[in-house]
Design a protein around this nucleic acid. Structure first.
Lengths: 221, 221
DNA sequence: ACTTCTATGATTGAGTTCCGCTCGGTGAGC
DNA sequence: GCTCACCGAGCGGAACTCAATCATAGAAGT
């Protein structure tokens, strides 16, 4: 079981929320352009204030184009979140491959670093923390919930570092993911580059929480 | 320094987000009636789908009345959140008074219990976790952020149980509040009455996190 | 006390503006 | 020329306004 399998084979699949699957070349660029625009607008005016007209104008497209690809306003935000989550997973996979973690903690630490990096560099990344609060979790998007990510991460840790626990491991990782998400989002709430104190505390909390169950000395198999 | 002082003297102050402060008797009833209606509607249709017309109709008022008290749609939601936070604080104060906690952990445990109880009983209480994610933290509402609550709680713990630490204590409590908020909200994401497993894990996480700093044996002074 | 009287707060709901979204018409790629 | 992509005026509905109307508190008169 490879890392890229675990984290969802197709690295950056766009348009899952879209009405139609684009066939021509230019339209895929349009799609990502729309999401880029949405990301910028989200950072500028926030989630409620965003309008489809703003997204269209920022992307250099007309309002009709937005609705060609997305059924409604919230679908745009969902797609933006989807892309952000995908990019996060991809970044985790890349960093795991290059850094070659020796213990399970190195792997978890990698994920935290990737999250922080994206928060700093990627426009609209705040939306990752935002959207799961709403109800109506669209069918087919369960893999964006923290539970899914926890399952995937549990697979990696079990496979690569021999962590055991099955459902218990998944549960603890889901709790861990929720904690990390909230603390890191707090770190970026006031400080644009992220309050280092909260980030450091996040690492400590995660480490202590997981070490309590799985011990410090498990290394890669 | 009394508990009720710490948690903000006026127990239930409504209309801080309101355009005008009501003077007549009936208008305060109107205000709380509007928020009651908003709370029910939030539970029924969610945050995006809520309309001012729904709130007005549910409250037996006309649309104009809503806008007499709140400048716009989001202000209604902010006010609802404000009231929910106030009620949470009040419930914590009440439970602390009646139960007479012997250790700092009893006090923290009280707060968790109060949060869970309100999640179960109070309509629209989900909004507490929701609103702080948006930007534009309205000036004058800083006391609704987790930081303010952490400061107040730090005051209680320092005063009643002799916990030391000053700014560090406040920081750790803010981290703790963020963690508890996210885990407990996760507990209620799928299960209406709250997944007991997440709730129990929340207590354990909070306990372990704080015990690491302040030890288990501190009792009331 | 008890009743007007009135200034001001409270309420209304039709109307205005703005935004989400559609759809027929036009242009670009295969 | 056939299909996919794009446009933007227009439609429906939701957010929000405002001038007219009603209700209330408290003053003034008896």
């Amino acid at each position: 079981m490879s890392l890229s399998d675990l984290f969802g084979g197709d690295p950056v699949v766009l348009g899952q929320q879209a009405r139609i699957e684009p066939t021509q070349q230019r339209s895929t660029a349009r799609l990502s352009g729309l999401l880029d625009a949405a990301a910028v607008v989200v950072d500028e005016v926030g989630f409620d204030r965003i309008t489809t007209a703003m997204v269209a104008e920022r992307a250099g497209a007309s309002i009709g184009t937005v609705y060609r690809y997305y059924p409604d306003r919230v679908a745009v935000l969902q797609a933006l979140r989807e892309r952000a989550v995908m990019r996060f997973r991809q970044r985790v996979v890349d960093q795991l491959k290059t850094s070659g973690p020796e213990t399970w903690w190195d792997a978890v630490d990698c994920a935290i670093t990737a999250f922080v990096d994206l928060y700093r560099s990627e426009a609209g990344f705040r939306i990752v923390h935002f959207a799961d609060r709403e109800r109506t979790p669209v069918s087919g998007s369960e893999d964006l919930q923290s539970g899914y990510f926890a399952r995937q991460l549990a697979g990696v840790l079990a496979e690569e570092f021999g962590l055991t626990g099955g459902a218990d491991l998944i549960f603890r990782l889901e709790v861990a993911v929720e904690m990390a998400d909230s603390i890191l989002s707090r770190a970026f709430q006031t400080t644009p580059n992220g309050d280092e104190r909260f980030i450091a505390e996040c690492r400590r909390v995660m480490h202590d929480y997981l070490v309590g169950y799985y011990g410090p000395s498990v290394v890669a198999v």
